[in-house]
Simulated assay, not measured.
Amino acid sequence: MNMTTEEYSRTFSSYSGADIVASFNGRVIGELQALSYSVSREVAPIYTMGSADARSYSRGKRGISGSLVFVTFDRDALMEEMKKDYSGKAPAMMQYQTFQANAGSLENQILSGLRSRAADGQSTYGISTWDDQMTNLGYGPSGDFNPDNLTGFYDPEYADQLMPFNITVTMANEFGNRSGMEIYGIQLLNEGSGFSIDDVVTAKAYSFVARKIKGIQKKDSLRQEGRASARPVSGDLLR
């Protein structure tokens, strides 16, 4: 029986992790190690008087959740790549931005909640002058109060501050077969990592919820199906 590779590839097609690439809002992040998701739905039994058995089952809300695992090299890959989608910075008015901009000034220490000024001018610790300092920022250099002075675009500091994004999973193997799937409206909830002298690789994990999943669908093959490749003769190998 003479079975060729084409006959096997036309029957079955599978993908390994090496055949899969994931893009985040159209941006490929090569540090991704693993992606997992689950879809769950509430199911509740319905009972009536006179019977201990359920008459029926009612299906309720659906939830989609999962996790992302990234290998850590010299940066937080997800945060660094997703920050590129944030443009324009307002004056430093958020706690962490003002503290990073000039941690030594009294005003910035007040905003960071680390320090306040007492009525006698002495420096104390607390948030007693938070309201006054935020009001001064609202008035700005012009002296006219504008609430826009207190809001603006800021680079996220934690993963849970990232705006919702989509993930597209693209699959292609050496036979030319292709598939793909999408996860929509991902919002990150938790993040965690750790370091140990016994760990050869450092990883960082995120948990997320999503709004919708479009399952794996087969795409057009890169190779023409139903046509076997011609076997080269010995002379062709030497050309």
Rank of each mutant, 00 (worst) to 15 (best):
V39K: 12
R41F: 00
E42W: 01
V43I: 13
T48G: 15
M49Y: 12
A52Y: 03
A52C: 03
A52S: 14
D53R: 10
G63C: 09
G63L: 08
I64H: 12
G66P: 04
V69K: 14
V69F: 07
F70M: 14
V71G: 13
V71Q: 11
T72L: 15
A77S: 08
D85L: 00
Y86I: 04
K89R: 13
A92K: 10
Q100P: 01
N102C: 10
A103L: 02
E107P: 05
E107D: 11
Q109S: 05
I110W: 04
I110S: 08
S112H: 06
R115P: 02
R117E: 12
A118M: 10
A118W: 07
A119T: 04
A119H: 02
G121T: 03
Q122K: 12
Q122P: 03
T124L: 09
Y125G: 07
T129K: 15
T129D: 15
T135W: 09
G140I: 01
G143L: 03
P147N: 06
L150S: 05
L150D: 01
G152C: 05
Y154N: 06
P156S: 03
E157P: 03
Q161L: 01
L162E: 00
P164M: 01
F165R: 00
V169P: 08
V169Q: 08
T170C: 08
T170Y: 14
